[in-house]
Computed example of a mutant assay.
Amino acid sequence: MPLHRRSLLAITPALAAALSFGRLSHAYSRPAPMDEIRLWPGYAPGGEGVTVTPEVVERSTDPDYNDRIAKHTRDPLLTVVRPVQSNGVSMLLIPGGGYRWAVVDKEGMDCARVFAVMGYTCYVLRYRLPADGWAAGPDAPLQDAQRALRLVRAHAATEGRSADRTVVLGASAGGHLAGLLGARSDATYAAVDAADQHSHRPDALILLYPVATLTDPYAHSGSRRELLGESASPDQIAAYSLEQMDWSGAAPTFLLHAMDDTAVPVENALMLSATLRQAGVPVEVHLFEEGGHGFGIRLIEGRPAAVWPDLVRAWLGRRGL
């Protein structure tokens, strides 16, 4: 059932603002052409053994909104959604997809439009997938995320925004990738140009229903399988479990999860929040009674979690972002 202006106005002030600014003239209508930025000046690194064919699949049967997924990406990119009036802050959005594909709209373009209305210059990442034969294996998506964040900072500097006012929002498996971006201080690829002089760690981190642990019984088994394969060792699993990583010096982090999430159990956020607190990382956690998994913006009409964009805006605002 398509959403209409009246129902959207009931969701959250953030969406009401989006409508009032004319950014969503009809609920989740197809976007106008946006700027796109290729991540790598040539081929993405380590692709000599990659033979997959890229594909973008439209899952929606409703002409009022898109629900695309990107499979087997070989030329990762950023799609830029610009605000009418910039607040000087850049936002990198990393959608989910269980590392099997990367969502384009639900946790990408839909969220970007809302945050662009708030003044954020938004960049939606379409990243490579770890099981497609890249030499870096499970680090291939992280290579793209690190490169993307550096490019966002470089573009901010040339467009009059401060490079050190850059936040990252990740959802589900994209939350796991964003978490790796926040926790890991090591560079995963050799510098290719001047953009790589910028930091690859966020200034603030927002994780929506994130895949955090890869250990049973709370792991999202599909994400673990796509990232590490069917027979990952305990050491590999531990190395990519966010709650077992060293978060010292990481950016302030915002966690949001629904208690009734049956795909990625809420324990993922709880375990990670405990690790963050122990590491001395400022953390704010919001748990909602209902909302399920993967709700993004469009799927939370009338649910408690519908307020999440405004909670994020308030949290960022307290940090000057």
Rank of each mutant, 00 (worst) to 15 (best):
P76G: 10
P76Y: 12
L77E: 03
L77N: 00
L77S: 05
L77M: 08
L77P: 00
V80K: 00
P83D: 07
V84H: 11
N87L: 11
N87A: 07
V89E: 07
M91D: 00
M91G: 03
L93S: 02
L93Y: 03
P95T: 12
G97K: 04
G97V: 11
G98E: 05
R100I: 10
A102E: 07
K106C: 09
M109K: 13
D110K: 02
C111S: 14
C111A: 15
C111M: 12
F115P: 01
V117N: 09
M118K: 15
G119D: 05
G119W: 01
Y120C: 13
T121E: 12
Y123T: 08
V124E: 14
V124H: 12
L125S: 04
L125K: 06
R126T: 15
R128H: 15
D132E: 14
G133W: 05
A135Y: 09
A135D: 13
A140I: 10
A140T: 14
P141H: 07
P141D: 04
L142E: 02
L142D: 08
L142G: 01
Q143S: 12
D144M: 11
A145K: 11
A145E: 03
A148K: 10
A148R: 08
A148V: 07
R150L: 14
L151A: 09
L151S: 09
L151E: 00
V152D: 04
R153P: 10
R153L: 09
R153N: 04
A154F: 03
A156R: 06
A156L: 05
A157D: 06
T158Q: 15
E159A: 05
R161E: 01
A163R: 02
R165T: 06
T166L: 03
T166Q: 00
G170P: 07
S172E: 10
G174C: 13
G174A: 10
G174E: 08
G175N: 03
G175K: 05
H176D: 06
G179E: 00
G179R: 02
